[in-house]
Amino acid sequence: MRRWLGQHLAALGDALRRLLAAPLNTVLSLLVIGVALTLPSAGWLALENVRQLIGDNPGVQQISIFLSLDAEKRDIGEIESRLRAAKAGNWRFVAREEALRHLQASEGMAEIIASLPRNPLPDAFVFTPSSAQPEVLEQLARTFATWPKVAHVQLDSAWVHRLAALIRLGRLVLLLLGVLFAGALVTITFNTIRLQIFAQAAEIEVARLIGATDAYIQRPLHYFGMLQGAFGGLCAALLVTLGFQLLTPAVAELARLYGSNFTMRGLTASDVALLAAIGGSLGWLGAKISVLTHLRRFA
């Protein structure tokens, strides 16, 4: 076990030395890999921020339950009991007097409201479901509409469906981009390892003559590809973080103008580790394919 570990540590050290031996080429390769991983990573993070914004803004997933004008306190209490028993989310009761005050506070509405003989607004419940799935929202709306003294249930289900469809489309586009750029990363590593093999052709031939095994020759090249991919993933994380840091003040200002305290979510430590792992895995795959393809000439 100690011998096996020593061989892998020696191969890892050799791969690091090869990376440091040509710093300019290494930096350029890392930047290319970083850019290839940045686009799908930034898109995924943008989608996560959209989901967070939707979750923090209950207005896009609220159901308004308007009662009949003749609803009494007993009817209101019964609906509260039904909502409590449903255990599907939170709700807030809006009395007709409170709704009238809010309407009077709107610009240009005070004189119109004052001219009315009585309050035309009904009592209402504003229900915020725990699930934002369109099917769940529609089922809840249909259920609420059957309750006694409920005159109207308002749910913009078409908007919810459009939003869900856009998010699904965004995920599909990100998946396609991820596959495309993963192939690009494998190709970059493939060519880099190919150049390494050609540059060290004499060294590889000598190693074979003195009895070096295929595993011994291939191991540093595998680690080289893995390290290059992992460092490229870290470079992508840095680029995404810098980009979101530049966007955060503008997004926060826009959110403030709309009365929201939304702040953009950046990459977490686990996200950075995942990017490095993905880059390392793809780099190892590219190195593996390149080694199997080009080392045959030395057989």
Rank of each mutant, 00 (worst) to 15 (best):
A184D: 02
V27C: 02
V179P: 01
G211C: 06
F198Q: 12
R118W: 10
V251Y: 08
M264D: 05
A184N: 03
A276V: 05
R171S: 09
L221N: 03
A22R: 15
A124Q: 13
A201H: 10
R17F: 04
G211K: 09
V251E: 04
A299F: 07
G13C: 04
L234I: 10
L5D: 12
L267T: 08
S68K: 10
H152P: 00
L9E: 12
I197Y: 12
V160H: 05
D123R: 13
Q218M: 05
V94K: 10
R18K: 14
T248G: 04
L5R: 15
I112W: 14
L69P: 00
N191I: 12
V94S: 13
A85Y: 11
Q245E: 10
K73I: 13
P23C: 09
V206F: 10
G280N: 04
I217R: 08
L24S: 05
T241V: 01
W284I: 05
F93L: 12
R51P: 03
A145N: 09
T146W: 06
R3G: 00
L137P: 04
Q228H: 07
N57A: 13
F262C: 03
I210S: 01
F127H: 06
K288Q: 11
A99E: 06
L45E: 04
N49H: 06
R3D: 06
S157T: 08
L267Q: 06
L19K: 05
R118M: 11
R208N: 00
G232N: 00
R18G: 10
A287N: 05
H102T: 13
A124M: 13
V27S: 12
L121D: 05
